[in-house]
Computed example of a mutant assay.
Amino acid sequence: MYTVRPLSARELREGAAERLGGLMADTVDGGASIGFLAPLDRAAAAGWWRALAPDVEAGRLLVWVAETPGEGRIAGTVQLRPAATDNGRHRADVAKLMVHRADRGQGLAGRLLAALESAAGELGLRTLVLDTETDSPAERMYAAAGWTRVGTVPDFATDPAGVPRATTVFYKALPDGAARDEG
């Protein structure tokens, strides 16, 4: 069984970044298009995660992890970035949903998304947006999880091998969330 929980900025600074760097390297080296080229250096990936700590601390970014019990290995993660503009207080971007190749098929992606969606609703967010590589397993997973396909953008990003690929944009409308506090 896995535990899904939010991650703090302190945890990113004190060792979680290294574990997340390993997860990210596995994800990229496995062919997932999440913004990096393969092979991904684990130390560079850990540095990327550590650099997120100020945004997590300020509440500009929320990060969840799925951990294995006992050993505390990070098997998956997802991020939520609420919009920073006044007219976007009701929406957020979902990013970097990753599940380690050894842990796929256990429902972790769905559990991570459910935790993120629940927290987004509690924050008063009503509209979530994400993009993913077209024709990827991730695209099928988002559709199955109730996300609505908006369309595709040709050659939007490259895969980890550097080959341009189309990206599919999705959104999800959350039920009756109240707008975030305007103050």
Rank of each mutant, 00 (worst) to 15 (best):
P164T: 13
A173T: 12
L7C: 11
R89C: 09
R60E: 09
K96T: 01
T85M: 08
T168R: 06
W48M: 06
A144M: 01
D103Q: 11
A32M: 12
A179E: 05
G88F: 03
R5K: 14
Y171E: 01
G105C: 06
A166F: 05
S118D: 09
R149A: 05
G121S: 14
M98A: 05
Y142Q: 01
G151N: 06
D181K: 14
A166R: 06
R5E: 15
A157L: 14
A46G: 04
T68N: 08
L125C: 08
R13C: 07
R91K: 11
M1N: 13
A75I: 02
V163T: 15
G70I: 05
L123N: 03
A145Q: 07
D93K: 10
V99M: 10
V4Q: 02
L61S: 00
R89Q: 07
R149Q: 08
A109R: 03
P54Q: 10
W147V: 01
G177P: 02
V56P: 09
A173C: 01
A144N: 00
V99H: 03
D159P: 03
R50L: 02
G21M: 03
E117C: 06
A157M: 15
T85D: 07
L174C: 00
D93F: 12
S8C: 03
D86Q: 14
W48F: 12
V56W: 10
L62Q: 13
T27M: 10
T85E: 10
A46H: 14
Y171G: 00
R5N: 12
G30C: 08
N87W: 06
R42W: 05
R81I: 01
S118K: 15
V169T: 13
Q106N: 10
G124R: 04
G15D: 09
P39M: 08
A145H: 11
G15T: 11
L80E: 01
P69L: 02
A43C: 12
A44P: 04
A58I: 00
H90P: 02
K96N: 09
P137K: 00
G72E: 11
T77P: 04
L125H: 11
V150S: 09
G22V: 05
A17N: 14
R91C: 15
S33V: 07
G21Y: 03
E182T: 10
A143N: 09
G162Y: 09
T158K: 09
D181T: 07
D41E: 13
